[in-house]
């Protein structure tokens, strides 16, 4: 069963007809030619398909596109704008990737995560969830925990953490 939807993807309005079964990830990749989000597991278990959906980091493999009609989506490609986002520059400076497959998801996740920390959200390793949290509390342990939804099989975690640490400043 088909549905007509409109999305705003990386700043551009995009219309398409999708099968209701089509995930947001497949809509982006197979219908709209937006291949920055990657399919690593298709079950929300790896984070490679992460984008910013209305400003928040989400996996796109577990969302039906039809339920996201009207959403604003920013992928790693869109984050770059005409050049590169500071988070992307930090990943380059720190060699925060190897094969690059998880990288667009890592970067979207990192941008979303830093926003969450700025908004004062605690994490599972925040010593006192009842206390206030701000961006200065974002130490390595916090970054590691908050970025654990993005698997990297090449093992670039150490460099990802140092990249985010720098970009979050």
């Amino acid at each position: 069963m088909d549905a007509e939807i409109t999305l705003r993807v990386d700043g551009r309005p995009r219309q398409c007809t999708v099968d209701t079964r089509t995930t947001l990830l497949d809509t982006l990749r197979e219908h709209l030619g937006v291949s920055a989000p990657k399919k690593g597991c298709d079950h929300g278990q790896c984070g490679s398909c992460t984008v910013l959906l209305d400003g928040r980091r989400v996996t796109t493999c577990l969302a039906f596109a039809v339920a996201q009609n009207g959403a604003e989506i920013t992928t790693a490609e869109g984050l770059a704008g005409d050049g590169e986002h500071p988070m992307q520059r930090a990943f380059l400076d720190h060699d925060g990737f190897q094969c690059g497959f998880c990288t667009p998801g890592q970067i979207c996740s990192a941008v979303g995560m830093v926003d969450e920390a700025r908004a004062g959200w605690p994490s599972a390793v925040t010593p006192d969830v009842a206390g206030s949290v701000d961006i200065d509390d974002l130490d390595d342990a916090e970054i590691r925990e908050r970025m654990s939804g993005n698997l990297c099989r090449c093992g670039a975690y150490v460099n990802i953490v140092s990249a985010i640490r720098e970009a979050a400043r």
């Binding site: 989400v58 996996t59 996740s109 979303g112 605690p122 969830v129 970025m147 939804g149």
Partner: peptide, 16 residues
């Protein structure tokens, strides 16, 4: 409750 929520899944999944 906050701790339990934060220990579930990942940042991306908790947003959904």
């Amino acid at each position: 409750l906050a701790e339990a929520l934060l220990s579930g899944a990942s940042g991306q999944l908790r947003n959904l």
